[in-house]
Computed example of a mutant assay.
Amino acid sequence: MFKNAAKPKATFTLWILLNRKLATVDRLAKWGMALNKTCVLCKNVDESLDHMFLHCHYVGEVWERLLQWIGNHSNRPRTWAQFIQWSIQNGKGKSTRAQLFKMILAEGVYALWNERNKRIF
């Protein structure tokens, strides 16, 4: 029912995230680009991959609402290793619950990345 329900762009963005290759401000700064380093979503901390997807208050609220909506009450991960384990644990298998989690994860990451980009560009 939910197999491949996430848009290809969302699945690709999730793949880039899981490989830690998203072009966040800290990554672009390493390439010599001069940018405003403040997270455009919470405006409190410098943007990094870990901040954006694990620690940002704005992103945390989005994840809490999405997970609550699908009835997943697991604790949100706080470290990258926990994020990977959480993604595997909740997305493993072909059950409807696992398929729904994978779709929400991919679409959630994609929506957050797009919101971040809209606020910058």
Rank of each mutant, 00 (worst) to 15 (best):
F2S: 06
F2Y: 12
K3V: 15
K3W: 11
K3C: 11
N4M: 13
A5S: 14
A6D: 07
K7G: 09
K7Q: 11
P8S: 05
K9E: 11
A10N: 03
A10P: 02
T11R: 12
T11N: 05
T13P: 00
W15K: 06
W15T: 08
I16N: 00
L18F: 07
R20E: 11
K21Q: 07
A23R: 14
D26G: 00
D26S: 01
L28C: 09
A29L: 10
K30W: 00
K30F: 00
W31C: 07
W31Y: 09
G32M: 09
G32R: 09
A34H: 05
A34P: 00
C39K: 08
L41R: 04
K43S: 15
N44Y: 12
N44D: 15
E47R: 06
S48A: 02
S48D: 01
L49H: 04
F53D: 04
H55P: 00
H57T: 15
Y58A: 12
V59Y: 04
V62Q: 05
E64I: 02
E64C: 02
E64A: 08
E64G: 03
R65M: 10
L66R: 11
Q68V: 04
H73G: 09
H73E: 13
S74E: 15
N75A: 11
R76I: 11
P77F: 01
R78W: 04
T79H: 02
T79K: 05
W80F: 06
A81E: 13
A81Q: 13
A81C: 08
Q82C: 03
Q82D: 11
Q85K: 14
Q85W: 08
I88N: 07
K92M: 09
G93C: 05
A98C: 01
L100Q: 10
L100F: 04
F101K: 04
K102R: 13
M103C: 13
M103Q: 09
L105Q: 10
A106M: 02
G108S: 05
G108A: 04
V109T: 02
K118L: 15
